[in-house]
């Protein structure tokens, strides 16, 4: 009896270690640049891989006229056109939308590539790191504010932060609320992507660990649970694949909506 609880405990301990091992960034070294410490880590490696993939593969596919790459080309084109015609233009308008389309397209493909890289064996999900999603959200926040100021001027933008038709005496209350709301939107973007990418991975790892937790009760339990676990993991992987696209889309979509709100008040 005592041994069994020990086994379960050690299983749970192992689960925690396994989760940390797979989800948390592995820092190999620190680049010391005066007061700043820049980590050289697995998530950085993933970002570099994504960077190289996007910089090399995307232009190659887009520029090539060969029939072999035609399906990939049309896939990229469909995604790009979808972002442009269904996401960016309806929110920002045609002219502004075409001006900022580069940002949204890059954002989508960057997040998507990072999400997908996390599904490869030995890969890590950089978008499952708050620092990464935080940086992406911060850049979106900068874009939102920049686009708003660019369109309405700095005074116009600040004035329009508070919705029109509000009595003047409410301004002192509403203005801070709207400012906080702006930051909250970005923060929500950051946490949404982070949690979604993390959640799926934790569920997958937990399903796999079931095998070993039940295995610690006896080999027969482990083998009994294994097929169920594998099936569940397969299902989760398929879901993750979908979520990888979905979350990239949602991040871009919400950024476009917020930018549209900043650009066109009312």
């Amino acid at each position: 009896m005592h041994e069994e609880t020990c086994g379960v405990n050690s299983g749970i301990m192992e689960l925690k270690e396994i989760l940390e091992h797979h989800i948390i960034d592995k820092v190999w070294a620190y680049l010391e640049l005066g007061p700043v410490h820049l980590p050289v880590s697995k998530h950085l490696l993933m970002m570099v891989i994504a960077f190289i993939l996007l910089v090399v593969v995307l232009p190659f596919i887009i520029r090539s006229r060969s029939a072999v790459t035609a399906p990939l080309r049309s896939m990229i084109e469909v995604i790009f056109l979808f972002i442009r015609d269904e996401v960016v233009r309806p929110n920002l308008g045609r002219e502004l939308g075409d001006k900022y389309i580069g940002y949204f397209a890059t954002l989508f493909f960057f997040i998507l590539t990072l999400n997908l890289l996390g599904l490869f064996p030995f890969g890590a999900t950089a978008t499952g790191n708050l620092a990464v999603t935080g940086a992406l959200a911060a850049m979106s926040l900068v874009l939102i504010v920049y686009a708003g100021i660019r369109k309405q001027g700095i005074t116009g933008y600040i004035k329009h932060l508070v919705p029109g038709g509000v009595p003047v005496w409410l301004y002192p209350i509403l203005f801070p609320i709207e400012l906080i709301g702006l930051v909250t939107k970005a923060f929500a973007l950051c946490v949404r992507l982070f949690a979604n990418m993390l959640g799926g991975h934790i569920v997958i790892l937990s399903f796999i660990c079931f095998i070993f937790i039940f295995g610690s009760f006896g080999a027969i339990y482990g083998f009994g649970v294994a097929p169920v676990s594998v099936l569940l993991v397969l299902f989760m992987m398929a879901l993750e694949l979908f979520v990888a696209f979905l979350q990239a889309y949602i991040f871009v979509f919400l950024t476009a909506i917020f930018t549209g709100m900043a650009v066109n008040p009312h």
Binding site: I24, V36, L44, L54, F110, N129, V132, A135, L136
Partner: peptide, 19 residues
């Protein structure tokens, strides 16, 4: 998990802006 390493944020921004 919830203690972001802002060094990585810096890399992310560099990466993304370059992209």
């Amino acid at each position: 998990l919830i203690r972001p390493d802002f060094g990585l944020s810096f890399w992310t921004i560099v990466c993304f802006v370059l992209l």
